[in-house]
Amino acid sequence: MNDMSRVERAVEIKQTKMECRDCHVYYGDTHAIKNVNVDIEDKTVTAFIGPSGCGKSTFLRCLNRMNDTIAGARVEGSFMLDGEDIYDKRVDPVQLRAKVGMVFQKPNPFPKSIYDNVAYGPRIHGLARNRAEMDEIVEKALRRGAIWDEVKDRLDAPGTGLSGGQQQRLCIARAIATEPEVLLMDEPCSALDPIATAQVEELIDELRQNYSVVIVTHSMQQAARVSQKTAFFHLGQLVEFGETGQIFTNPEDPRTESYITGRIG
């Protein structure tokens, strides 16, 4: 029985969720991303690593069109989500972002109650017909965010009053409350202490069962711990992309090896 489910999962991992081809991003005159090709697989954690300013966050923000909100940013290339181009004119970026959720570097709970923070997404997308359904969605999201036990008695307390690690897990719960298919995380642990980081990493590993997760990180240990696929960016280019174990033990490109061993970065 157990063996059966494992086999099933191994088959699912092969499915490609997002397919990015010939991607370029410009900020005004700056060519920030140069010709990047990446396949994001379903139910997999994909890590983007690379030195600061290498474009990994920029590329992440292309995946749910958050670069649209930045004046002067221009995106070229094809980004397919389940075979549909997300930059197509007919695609509504607002609905896309409900499918491709995002968690940011700094925990950014809204100045509202914990309940309202989680209910925010479902409310704007009309996912609940009544209060009871909303309660259910909020509880489910908080449970999946591994924070339910800590906040279940104070759902009316402001989200800003939680500790940093709790805030970040609240933000993850908030992002998964809209049932996204892909979850983008931009250095989700960089503002957290080691204990909170461990909790969030554990959570990311659990989220893999339901979502495709893309995580940008500065910590190579973190990438090695949580991801199955790793992409190494350098100066706006994708240098190497492959199985995490492969990248960390036997990189093909000398630049990847230099970065992993700490000679550049």
Binding site: R97, F104, K106, I124, A175
Partner: peptide, 22 residues
């Protein structure tokens, strides 16, 4: 903070929803 807006837009809210509720 811009992170408030990003958080709301990242959840699929429109600009006016972001302004109104965040």
């Amino acid at each position: 903070p811009q992170s408030m807006r990003d958080g709301s837009l990242g959840l699929g809210a429109t600009r006016s929803e972001t302004v109104r509720s965040v």
